[in-house]
Simulated assay, not measured.
Amino acid sequence: MSQEPTVKVDEDALGPALNRLRRAQGQLSGVIAMIESGRDCRDIVTQLAAASRALDRAGFKIVASGMRQCTAAGGGTPPMSETELERLFLALA
């Protein structure tokens, strides 16, 4: 059985990525509360778009910080192929 490549996030990128994820988590909680309280659709969509952007930015930060590791062999795992990297980026789109 092959071992999946893992990404270790650069320590300098970890803090900002986690902050973005926490921000998105708070925004999603806000969206849920807004829906439950019957808020205006425009307000809900605006908040949902903000959460989506925060998730995208966190994802890009994590992928970008792990790119060197993903493209280089190390730790007994083969490097990711160009196709695998492309799929990884497209998953964020």
Rank of each mutant, 00 (worst) to 15 (best):
G15K: 11
P16W: 08
P16T: 06
A17V: 01
A17W: 03
L18H: 07
L18Q: 11
N19S: 14
N19V: 11
R20W: 04
R20N: 15
L21Y: 00
R22Y: 00
R23Y: 07
R23N: 07
A24F: 01
Q25P: 01
Q25T: 10
Q25D: 15
G26V: 11
Q27E: 15
S29K: 11
V31T: 13
V31Q: 14
V31P: 04
V31C: 12
I32W: 06
M34V: 05
M34F: 00
M34I: 02
M34N: 13
E36D: 11
E36A: 12
G38H: 10
R39G: 06
R39A: 13
R39P: 04
D40K: 10
D40G: 01
C41Q: 14
C41P: 07
C41L: 08
C41N: 07
R42H: 06
I44L: 09
I44N: 02
I44G: 00
V45H: 01
T46V: 04
T46S: 12
Q47C: 01
L48M: 03
L48D: 08
A49I: 05
A49P: 01
A51I: 14
A51W: 14
A51M: 09
A54F: 03
A54E: 00
D56A: 13
D56R: 14
R57T: 14
A58Y: 03
G59M: 04
G59V: 12
G59S: 03
F60A: 03
F60N: 06
F60L: 13
K61A: 15
K61T: 07
K61G: 15
I62E: 07
I62L: 09
V63S: 09
A64I: 04
M67N: 11
M67E: 15
M67S: 05
R68H: 09
Q69R: 04
T71V: 12
A72Q: 13
A73L: 01
A73R: 02
G74R: 06
G75A: 11
G75N: 13
G75H: 06
G75Q: 07
G76T: 10
G76F: 09
G76N: 02
M80Y: 02
S81E: 12
T83S: 13
E84S: 01
E84Y: 05
L85K: 09
R87V: 08
